[in-house]
Simulated scan of single mutants.
Amino acid sequence: MTRLSHVDYLAHLRRDSARFREVLATCDPEARVPACPDWSAADLLWHLGEVQWFWSQVISHRPAGPPEDDAHPERPGDHGGLLAFFDRSSADLTAALAAADPAEPAWSWADDQQTVGFTFRRQAHEALIHRLDAEQAAGVVTPLDPTLAADGVAELVEVMYGGEPPAWGRFEPGEGQVAIELTDVGTTIRVSPGMFFGTDPDSGRSYDGPHLLVVPAEGEPTATVRGTASAVDTWIWKRNGDAEITWTGDAGPRERFLAAIGSALN
């Protein structure tokens, strides 16, 4: 219900990357990033530049896997160098995506989403949230696009904090379901909060823990969380508090939902 066209994702990626760069060009490089207090504004600039470099390589060399560790660029030593690196990385990523078919095979860390389309969506949201980080560091926050923010909520519960389990894992739902009502866009997303159990056979790593699964809206939800798309998106991303979020319904599903989104994302 929330997906944008790939043309729109690319347009958002360009706009939010440009705003990110505009803000950090004049921000004190040592300013702290509120949502990531260990980061300075300069660290944030390097982070998104490196992320966009990485995904430009993935798309440019599709369907091969990610670049080797020794191919990664070194961090520039000054603010001007960081800005220039970001400019190159951002231009390379948008050019690579503009020349690609979203349906083409391409590596991603999501086992069930091995296409270029994953990167269109993921990098639009990456740029949006880090644009907000830059604005919060500089004290010049501007509104988020509500349609992109609504899809950001969907991506969080479908991919970042949930999703269909792989063949080597299983999902055990808890009692009750949560409806996420995005009041300004007329969208409701229903999720089942529960537990994921499984060990990745390739890495040997266990991923047991709280998990969300998007489910059809059948019957009444056991609990409901309400807010604008921007309020819910930035709350789940830990970029804003819950002052604009309201809950109704049973405490059990609410607590399981909060456990599933408990870890911070950078």
Score class of each variant (00 low, 15 high):
residue 12 H to R: 14
residue 218 E to R: 11
residue 264 A to L: 03
residue 90 S to V: 00
residue 36 C to I: 15
residue 208 D to T: 11
residue 18 A to Y: 08
residue 10 L to C: 04
residue 120 F to T: 00
residue 12 H to E: 09
residue 98 A to C: 04
residue 18 A to P: 05
residue 236 I to A: 03
residue 222 T to S: 14
residue 12 H to L: 12
residue 8 D to I: 14
residue 237 W to F: 14
residue 4 L to A: 07
residue 55 W to Q: 00
residue 84 A to C: 07
residue 77 G to Y: 15
residue 63 P to D: 01
residue 133 D to T: 05
residue 56 S to W: 01
residue 16 D to F: 02
residue 39 W to K: 01
residue 50 E to N: 15
residue 172 E to R: 13
residue 205 R to K: 15
residue 200 D to Y: 00
residue 187 T to M: 13
residue 258 L to R: 03
residue 199 T to D: 03
residue 76 P to V: 08
residue 110 A to E: 15
residue 52 Q to M: 10
residue 209 G to V: 02
residue 136 Q to K: 12
residue 43 D to P: 02
residue 62 R to E: 13
residue 27 C to V: 10
residue 22 E to D: 13
residue 188 T to L: 09
residue 124 A to C: 07
residue 55 W to H: 06
residue 113 Q to F: 07
residue 216 P to C: 08
residue 8 D to F: 11
residue 150 A to Y: 01
residue 13 L to W: 04
residue 114 Q to R: 03
residue 225 V to E: 08
residue 95 A to D: 09
residue 243 A to K: 13
residue 9 Y to R: 06
residue 192 S to H: 04
residue 239 R to M: 04
residue 111 D to M: 11
residue 142 T to Y: 02
residue 220 E to C: 06
residue 15 R to M: 12
residue 116 V to Q: 02
residue 13 L to K: 02
residue 74 E to M: 13
residue 195 M to G: 06
residue 138 A to H: 03
residue 145 D to V: 02
residue 195 M to T: 13
residue 35 A to P: 10
residue 56 S to T: 03
residue 3 R to K: 14
residue 180 I to K: 00
residue 140 V to Y: 08
residue 19 R to V: 15
residue 91 A to Q: 15
residue 128 L to R: 09
residue 236 I to C: 00
residue 171 F to N: 05
residue 210 P to S: 11
residue 99 A to H: 09
residue 186 G to Y: 01
residue 91 A to R: 14
residue 202 D to E: 14
residue 15 R to Y: 08
residue 8 D to T: 15
residue 262 G to Q: 10
residue 178 V to G: 03
residue 96 A to I: 00
residue 93 L to W: 03
residue 36 C to M: 14
residue 152 G to K: 00
residue 196 F to R: 12
residue 191 V to I: 15
residue 88 R to P: 11
residue 259 A to Y: 09
residue 39 W to A: 01
residue 227 G to A: 11
residue 153 V to G: 00
residue 254 R to P: 08
residue 238 K to Y: 13
residue 200 D to F: 01
residue 42 A to P: 06
residue 160 M to Q: 14
residue 139 G to Q: 10
residue 61 H to D: 01
residue 258 L to T: 12
residue 96 A to C: 04
residue 5 S to D: 15
residue 146 P to S: 05
residue 84 A to E: 13
residue 199 T to P: 11
residue 106 A to F: 05
residue 89 S to W: 01
residue 7 V to P: 00
residue 92 D to R: 08
residue 9 Y to C: 10
residue 183 T to A: 04
residue 181 E to F: 06
residue 187 T to K: 11
residue 42 A to K: 06
residue 92 D to I: 02
residue 223 A to F: 07
residue 55 W to Y: 09
residue 33 V to S: 00
residue 147 T to Y: 07
residue 121 R to L: 06
residue 189 I to W: 05
residue 38 D to I: 01
residue 207 Y to K: 10
residue 22 E to T: 14
residue 23 V to N: 10
residue 156 L to Y: 08
residue 263 S to Q: 14
residue 142 T to H: 12
residue 188 T to V: 12
residue 217 A to M: 06
residue 185 V to D: 03
residue 110 A to Y: 08
residue 162 G to Q: 10
residue 236 I to Q: 01
residue 237 W to R: 11
residue 19 R to M: 14
residue 79 H to C: 03
residue 110 A to I: 05
residue 192 S to D: 02
residue 174 G to I: 04
residue 261 I to N: 05
residue 186 G to L: 04
residue 160 M to R: 12
residue 10 L to N: 04
residue 3 R to Y: 12
residue 161 Y to H: 12
residue 66 P to A: 12
residue 172 E to P: 09
